[in-house]
Design a protein around this nucleic acid. Sequence first.
DNA 1: TTGACTAATATTGTCGACACATAACAGAAA
DNA 2: TTTCTGTTATGTGTCGACAATATTAGTCAA
Lengths: 222, 222
Amino acid sequence: MEKSDPVTVTLTDRLFDTLQRAIVEGEIQSGSKISEPELARLHGVSRGSLREAIGRLEARKLVERKPNLGARVVSLSYEQLIEIYQVREALEGMAARLAAQNMSDKEVEELQSLLNEHGREIEEVHGEAYFQKQGDLDFHYRIVQGSKNHHLIGLLCNDLYHLLRMYRFQFGMRSKRSSQAYDEHHYLLNAIASRDPEMAELLMRQHIRSSRRNVERMLLES
Amino acid sequence: MEKSDPVTVTLTDRLFDTLQRAIVEGEIQSGSKISEPELARLHGVSRGSLREAIGRLEARKLVERKPNLGARVVSLSYEQLIEIYQVREALEGMAARLAAQNMSDKEVEELQSLLNEHGREIEEVHGEAYFQKQGDLDFHYRIVQGSKNHHLIGLLCNDLYHLLRMYRFQFGMRSKRSSQAYDEHHYLLNAIASRDPEMAELLMRQHIRSSRRNVERMLLES
DNA sequence: TTGACTAATATTGTCGACACATAACAGAAA
DNA sequence: TTTCTGTTATGTGTCGACAATATTAGTCAA
């Protein structure tokens, strides 16, 4: 009789999740100072637990801490976003390469149906926002999982993606290129399905570069 | 009047450094359990501070923690080492690409003299151990710095390199291919000096792949 | 002897309080 | 008024103690 995963997650764990969401979604203003006593009182928790949670946020680069001065939520800059995209290009490129080698046939099939789904939705809605918001992340997420490289998976899914979501939330970045992105996903998946690692990496990197250029344009307008 | 950097680093900081060194160099057996009360007593420090230090070690993937069970030093496996090399290939490849674009002429020159130095040392000593141990890291370190991408620099210099050093210490990995590595460094630096990002990335990735193959051979012997 | 159940022990999670550093403020000197 | 200095106040760093959970030891029955 399997006891269903006691969900005993420690208090610090829950706190961390809560704070991460609050920061990513902008409830806690980016760049603002974090007062330990205030936050602790607010969440009805001791400062010790809070500090451990903040420590984890720092590890994920969502807050910055200076000794004796306290912690601030990172402030989002254009330069930092570019840096993130460069790292992402490198890592996801490798993920695509590995996915072409290591994804199971079943996973590839499921990814194909997911992509078909996206295609229909784009036709129907004359696809505007949905794609970037959810579908895009889903697609990338699955490929990263398919790499089967746990270190890589951790770096992308635990660290980078939250930072990216933070930018999307706060800069209101929604792509106006869903049909192009869809095409790119299509080619990429073909490369993976034909087990062509070289091509998969190449296409993934192009896809991310073009996504970056799109973001650059968008930000330079405002 | 510049006050010289108060070196007030918090107690947790020093603890973290100490523990990180101890783990990397194998003083604390890999795979062994970390007892909070014991370690705290040993270092004459409270459990709270120790726990914060352990938290940072966890973020750098040097220890693994399970709720209510405590922390263990990561156990090094062949599979994990391969994973690390794959991540490293992706990240350092990108670093080399960016370095070719962003390194200052001065930095390139300094790197060239460093490499010449290495060349002389290899000739003299009929270069055995030195290269892998120090020179190799120096060279890579500088290129990563030259990328000017702080996110990338953090990932490589703060996280990956310590893990790698841990493997080297504990598996006693010393390369028997210093002259080949030297040649590869040479070609790579040429690409950077001629500001050829594409070629720089290509050569760096080949270099790391061949280093990985070397490590694989070495481990499969024992 | 083995197995399961219970009691005792040790370890982790959480808390509140104290020590110290930094920031805010008020008053004196220029 | 402006600047400097000493004082107050807020906030972070560190600690020791209590509560909750896991591990070990011990007991009894099969």
